[in-house]
Design a protein around this nucleic acid. Structure first.
Lengths: 158, 158
DNA sequence: ATAGATGTTAGAGTATACTCGAAGTCAAGA
DNA sequence: TCTTGACTTCGAGTATACTCTAACATCTAT
C-alpha cells in the first residue's frame, strides 16, 4: 500500500494553492498525477520531484506553455533525455541573461541611491548643474552619458 | 527655440513603441511631457532622463502603478528627494532578492544540465537508483535532499 | 446516519501590461 | 489645394497567470 497525498496536502507542503495546482493540471503540467476511482488526485512521494522541477522552471521565468512542453517530454521517458537537456540548457542561458540584466539595473539603482543622498544633502535635485565642470563627480558624468546614449538611440535592442 | 521630439521620434530612439508610450502616458507616467496647441506630445532633451528612469524601474520589475507613484514624487521637485531615495532603496533591496533567487535557480538548472548529460550517457533517467549507494554522486544526493525538503514543506515561505 | 471538511469540474472574474483599430485632426510637400 | 503621413483619443482585444464561485460528489469522524 502506497501513501498518497491529496491536493490539499500538496498545497500545504509546497505553498502552491490547491486552486493553482488544479490550474496547472488543466494546463497540462500535472498529467503524471494519478486519480482515485472517484476522480480525486492522488500525488505520490515521487510526484514531488517533477512538481519541484515545475517550480524551478516557473521561478526561472519559463511560461506555463513551455513548461507543458517539458512535461510532455518528461512523460515520454528515456527517449527524451536529450531534448530535456536542451531545454534546461536554453533555460540556463536565459537565467544568465536575466541575472546580467538585473545586475545592470542594480548598478543604475545603486547610483541613483547615491545621487539622491547627495541631492538631499544639498536640497537640490539638480545641484551638479551649478557646479564648475571639474567639481562634478565622475559618477554623474557617466550616468549622463548613459542617458545621452538612450536619447541617441544607442543599444535600443533589448 | 527648443528642439522637440515627437512620440514617433522617441519611439524610434528608445525602442519603446508609440502605442506603449501613449499607454504609459495614460497611466500617468509621462505627465512631464508638454503638448503643442493641437495636442501633440512634445518631448524635450531633458525628458529623456525621467523616461530612462522609467525603463530602469520597469526592468527592475517595478509595476506601472508604483512607477506612477515615483513620477508623482518626481513632479513635485526638491521636497520629495528623500521619498524618492527611499523608493530607490527599496527597489535596490528587491533587485538583490530577485538576483539571489535567480542565482539559486541557476544552481538547480546547472545541476539538471549536468544530470541530464549523465543520464543521457547511460540511456536511463533513473540510472543512479540502480547504483550502490557509495557510487552515487554527491550532487545527486544533495539534489534529492532539496526535493525531500520540498515534499516535507521546508522553506515554503516564498 | 449525517454533518462538515475536502475533493471535483466548468466557467467566470481579476490583474497586469500591453497592443491594436477606428475615426478623426493637423502640418508639410507636390 | 490636396494628399500623405504622423499625430490624437477612446475603447476594445490579447496574453499570461492566476483566483474564485457555484454546484455537486465523496470521505471521515461522531
Amino acid at each position: 500500500m502506497e501513501k498518497y497525498y491529496t491536493i490539499g496536502d500538496v498545497a500545504a507542503r509546497t505553498g502552491i494553492s490547491a486552486h493553482t495546482l488544479r490550474y496547472y493540471d488543466k494546463e497540462g503540467l500535472l498529467s503524471f498525477v494519478k486519480r482515485s476511482e472517484s476522480g480525486t488526485r492522488l500525488f505520490t512521494k515521487e510526484d514531488f520531484e517533477p512538481l519541484y522541477t515545475i517550480t524551478v522552471l516557473k521561478k526561472s521565468g519559463m511560461p506555463i506553455k513551455k513548461i507543458r512542453e517539458f512535461m510532455t517530454l518528461y512523460l515520454q521517458g528515456n527517449k527524451t533525455i536529450h531534448d530535456r537537456y536542451v531545454m534546461f540548457n536554453e533555460q540556463r542561458q536565459s537565467l544568465l541573461e536575466q541575472i546580467a540584466e538585473l545586475e545592470d539595473m542594480l548598478k543604475i539603482v545603486d547610483y541613483k541611491c547615491w545621487y539622491f543622498q547627495e541631492a538631499e544633502k544639498r536640497g537640490d535635485i539638480n545641484y551638479y548643474k551649478k557646479l564648475p565642470e571639474q567639481e562634478v563627480d565622475q559618477r554623474i558624468i557617466e550616468f549622463n552619458k548613459i542617458v545621452d546614449d538612450f536619447r541617441e538611440g544607442v543599444a535600443k535592442e533589448d
